[in-house]
């Protein structure tokens, strides 16, 4: 699903990712952990096609990350939700779904809004939402379209405990349906649901193995 080889990213003198090699097969739920500045967001942004690697390659389903076929397969939930100022949540969902050629979007949208407790917010502007509501709206946008690879950057931030539970179930369902799911987080409870853990530090991979709370806590 995702294959990175010799992936490196530099910002002037700073090395954000140092020659990373990783393969992620379909159906895996990966906990991507590491302290601030470890390179988690950079890795996810490169996989989404937002950033270009300085060296190395990264492929999604055999296509270069950021290419048109790769974009059709990749859903990215950024760490900071991004919305149009003049579109309601419902209009956002319609727009994003239709951009990805989803025909059954009305049903999917209703289901997602119900799952996330956003039904009554459908016609409201997300730019006026609270931090947690914005995060939930961003998650809904990430799930409204079909994907084979889900990249979620700190998706639990700002969520209340019940919403975190809902998100955990959604991530598990996505992985169970065959999608590769990569979740960047500092939360140790991710160990209970993930199938694999990758820890980064200073841009280098320091752990790649079964999920372990101590590894996650240590990396965070």
């Amino acid at each position: 699903m995702l294959m990175a080889s010799g992936l490196r990213r530099e910002y002037d003198d700073l090395i954000a990712l140092a020659s990373l090699d990783v393969q992620i097969p379909p159906g895996e739920l990966i906990a991507l952990v590491g302290p601030n500045g470890a390179g988690k967001t950079t890795l996810l942004a490169i996989a989404a096609g937002l950033l270009d690697p300085s060296h190395g390659t990264i492929q999604i389903c055999g296509d270069p990350a950021g290419s048109l076929p790769a974009r059709a397969q990749t859903s990215y939930i950024p760490d900071t939700p991004v919305f149009y100022q003049d579109l309601s949540l419902g209009e956002h969902l319609e727009y994003v779904a239709r951009l990805h050629g989803t025909s059954d979007w009305p049903d999917r949208a209703s289901l997602l809004l119900e799952q996330l407790g956003l039904e009554q917010w459908r016609d409201k502007l997300p730019t006026q939402f609270s931090r947690g509501m914005r995060q939930k709206a961003s998650i809904a946008l990430g799930f409204i379209r079909p994907f084979s690879l889900l990249l979620a950057d700190e998706p639990f931030d700002g969520l209340d405990p019940p919403s975190r539970g809902v998100l955990v179930e959604m991530l598990k369902t996505a992985a169970a349906s065959g999608a590769a799911v990569i979740v960047s987080t500092h939360r140790t409870e991710i160990a209970d649901i993930s199938s694999r853990c990758i820890a980064l530090r200073d841009g280098e991979m320091v752990y790649d193995g079964p999920p372990d709370r101590s590894v996650i806590a240590g990396a965070a």
Partner: peptide
């Protein structure tokens, strides 16, 4: 380019 367009349009499978 509007930030939302970068996130929602340019990351979508459209030309």
């Amino acid at each position: 380019i509007e930030a939302a367009d970068v996130q929602h349009v340019l990351l979508a499978p459209v030309d």
